[in-house]
Design a protein around this nucleic acid. Structure first.
Lengths: 199, 199
DNA sequence: ACCTGAACACCGTTCAAGT
DNA sequence: ACCTGAACACCGTTCAAGT
């Protein structure tokens, strides 16, 4: 008779994610994960191809949570104007990053690697943002606008988490300043396109 | 008679940086660095406290190069209007990241760690940007504006290097769109401060 | 004073042997 | 079919012994 399963893939990913958030990537060893799910390290390879594979699964788990959060914000908000909606999304994004700094880092700040999360998952997470930018900047600029906002938010939060804002000043104020000006500029007509003039 | 030095700290850092750019962080082993500078791994510890220490020195070396590039751009540009200057800085920043992706990642996308580069070096690198944003947004908003631009550029390039822009569209166009709208919004008067109204 | 081989602790991963 | 101990290759790091 085969022995009953003593753990599961979900358990392993959850354990890995907890270790990653609590102790950092260096402590995320196969042995530590195995210990937490009550098994020996070699057994993990029955459910996971490698440590990199496990990290990829952890990243996807984090992306799913992020997508859920943004979707919930999109329904909870009662849909005021697009500008307020965009600001709310930005704050939700930042809240996720603060609650899951290691997961956030895994999703957005990882070097190109086999651990990067799935495209489809990322697209789903970006969906609420695309709606907001389409309303603000028009459908033809929705993608560029979403990329601008994502890049800004991603970069801001990465730097905040990395402790890169060390020149003083109020970081919260800088965040509000940034999303506010971005929303303004997306809603406004572009002032001048110097690129078009020089071509 | 003591033996003459067979390597130097500069050699070690340069070798480490070359390996990092050419083969990625996983291949940046003490043995690989030692081999490249013609010495055995234990000898490295005469000039470097640890592998993390070496990574920190590599990051500082990259920051210095970045600062040099931005300063050169600031003198070469002949100082047209502040808007064009800001756009030039953004493109220079992106060019640096493309030429030194691993170094860029080390500077801006690293988790908070003992490998983070020195504050003073980062401040010096940010100097040209601060001047441009001060002209565009006024001195009282220079810091917030510089943070907005840095966050955007950093996030955009991080995502580009990570291959995160997978929803199609023209990435170059998105970059131009972003810096253009940002420059507009920094130069413009803010439309409305909803935060001020609710307090 | 710098360099080295040997050693140690600790990884990820494989695999034959158990149940 | 899952689990395990033992083993392997490969790290970072230390240190006594060389020159």
């Amino acid at each position: 008779m085969p022995t009953p399963d003593r753990t599961s893939l979900d358990d392993i990913v959850a354990a890995g994610r907890e270790i990653l958030e609590a102790e950092g990537p260096a402590k995320l060893t196969m042995q530590a994960v195995a210990l937490r799910v009550g098994v020996r390290a070699p057994s993990l390879y029955k459910r996971v191809k490698s440590r990199d594979d496990l990290i990829g699964l952890i990243a996807e788990s984090a992306v799913s949570d992020l997508a859920l959060r943004l979707q919930r914000a999109s329904t909870l908000e009662g849909r005021p104007d697009a500008r307020q909606y965009l600001v709310a999304l930005a704050h939700e994004f930042r809240a996720f990053a603060r609650a899951n700094p290691a997961g956030f880092h895994l999703i957005f700040a990882s070097a190109p690697s086999p651990t990067s999360p799935d495209v489809i998952l990322l697209a789903r997470a970006a969906q609420p943002l695309m709606e907001a930018t389409a309303q603000l900047a028009g459908p033809e600029n929705a993608l560029d606008a979403a990329r601008t906002v994502t890049a800004w938010a991603n970069g801001f939060i990465s730097m905040e988490l990395a402790g890169a804002f060390q020149l003083g000043g109020d970081v919260d104020r800088a965040f509000d300043f940034g999303i506010s000006r971005l929303a303004d500029s997306l809603a406004a007509e572009p002032i001048a396109s110097s690129a078009a003039r020089t071509s």
